[in-house]
Amino acid sequence: MSKSERPNPLFRNLNAKVASIPMILTAMVVFVGGTLWTVLYSFTNSKLLPRLNFVGLDQYYRLWATPRWLISIENLLIYGAISLVFSLVIGFLLAALLDQKIRFEDTFRTIFLYPFALSFIVTGLVWQWLLNPDFGIQHVVRDLGWTSFSFDPLYNSSIVIYGISIAALWQGTGLIMCLMLAGLRGIDEDIWKAARVDGIPMWKTYLFIVIPMMRPVFITTLVIIASGIVKVYDLVVAQTSGGPGIASEVPAKYVYDYMFFAQNLGQGFAASTMMLLSVAIVIVPWAYLEFGRRK
């Protein structure tokens, strides 16, 4: 039987397959299995313990009728819009400034990027201190004589999410600057020369030639910022713990609180499934554009 001499294809590259077991387990059990499990249990009325007692879309109806969830979503949208617009604009401007063959470029870059090395907890606590109305910026300005000056975003429920955004921008724009700078450096030097010979002013070169050329960098950056926005949690916990009241709640915190404090697992699962859905809305079109085009 010459056929039996052919090695079983299952055992080809056996070592590689053994080495890939952790990856396969992670991918299938945690990522696929865990996600499906959560989605499945979001249709149950699990309270303290997960239980397969299906109640259809009840958890979702309840979720969208909960003021705290609605505030969380509203906050996420505001926070997301601010993060997206300002980190792109500031990040690009800083990168463009650093790209002008300036002195001390490395020093400036180090300064703009160091907050990114800090955790959201540290970031949040520092800004909590700076924005403290009794000691922080408001207090300092009032001491200067402008006694009616008011700047207490973390204690004012109508603007608290903007206060959180200030800290987020401080922490995150350095990264965007770095990505943009790498993109700018990737532009062919000859393009700049050609534009100079053509007599095109610098701002027009940026606007009409360089930025359109950096489209892939912008898309990658957009995906990175967007996936970071959905996950925002630590920063809020450190800065305001969701307060004042529930004014600065975000979805990630809603999930955590319902799962581990309110002992209402079903709500937590439904809320996390909504988060998954919102990420999918961002990621799927991007992946389709990115990989669909390649085929």
């Binding site: 000859d190 393009i191 020369k193 534009a195 010979v197 053509d198 095109i200 009409f208 030639i209 359109p212």
Partner: peptide, 26 residues
């Protein structure tokens, strides 16, 4: 002067016509 580069340095998002006319329009 006019200059021609090794990497062509054409503006990739513009049509050929726009490439030729951009400097003149500016």
């Amino acid at each position: 002067i006019g200059m021609v580069f090794q990497s062509y340095a054409l503006y990739p998002q513009m049509t050929v016509e726009k490439n030729l006319s951009f400097g003149l329009r500016v």
